[in-house]
């Protein structure tokens, strides 16, 4: 077999391992589903380099994600694996995969809608945030915002007016 094919297999195997690592605060999502895992490649020395993009700059889960990735890759035989942090382009909830959105809804968390597009100056908004949110339990769209922050800062809390259950909504950024 030519080395290039071996390299490609190594990258694929490393990608498969990295893709299974889950978010510590949203354990139903893998880093792949979350869109945090940007690239798996080999450096000049043949070591595996995994590129991730942080979600929020103050997010305490980032260090854990990095640790978990390294531990998982090392346990799978990639002793020399490295994690590269790609800050650009900035992460957006638009990168969450369809499978990730389904997993969120399955876990009772309403998945984010499309992130706001930004062209030119960011327009001022003095009215409460309006989102098209559906209850992840019964599907009703008659919901009320109870708090801009839920169990974590990246989620808002809603209540369904139909089935009366409270639920988290992952905010779009």
């Amino acid at each position: 077999m030519v080395p290039a094919v071996l390299d490609q297999r190594r990258v694929e195997r490393a990608r498969a391992v990295a893709a299974t690592v889950t978010d510590p605060e949203l354990p139903m999502l893998t880093l792949h589903d979350l869109g945090v895992l940007r690239e798996v490649a080999l450096d000049e020395d043949g070591g595996v380099v995994v590129a991730i993009t942080p979600t929020y700059s103050g997010c305490p889960a980032m260090a854990t994600m990095r640790d978990d990735l390294l531990h998982r890759l090392q346990a799978a035989g990639f002793a020399e694996a490295r994690v590269r942090v790609a800050l650009e382009p900035a992460w957006t909830t638009d990168w969450i995969t369809p499978e990730g959105r389904a997993a969120l809804a399955e876990a009772g968390i309403s998945p984010p809608g499309p992130a706001p597009r930004r062209e030119g100056p960011v327009a001022l908004s003095l009215s409460p945030t309006r989102r098209a949110v559906r209850c992840p339990r019964c599907g009703a769209d008659d919901v009320a915002l109870t708090s801009e922050f839920g169990s974590t800062a990246c989620k808002a809390m809603y209540r369904c007016r139909d089935c009366l259950e409270p639920f988290d909504h992952l905010k779009e950024i």
């Binding site: 700059s57 930004r118 409460p128």
Partner: peptide, 26 residues
Amino acid sequence: AVLRAVAAKGVKELTYHRDFAGRWFL
């Protein structure tokens, strides 16, 4: 590139800070 990236992430955060304060101001 580092400052650029910090700024790009900061824009999303500061938009919320400004609008949160703006709503309470009103």
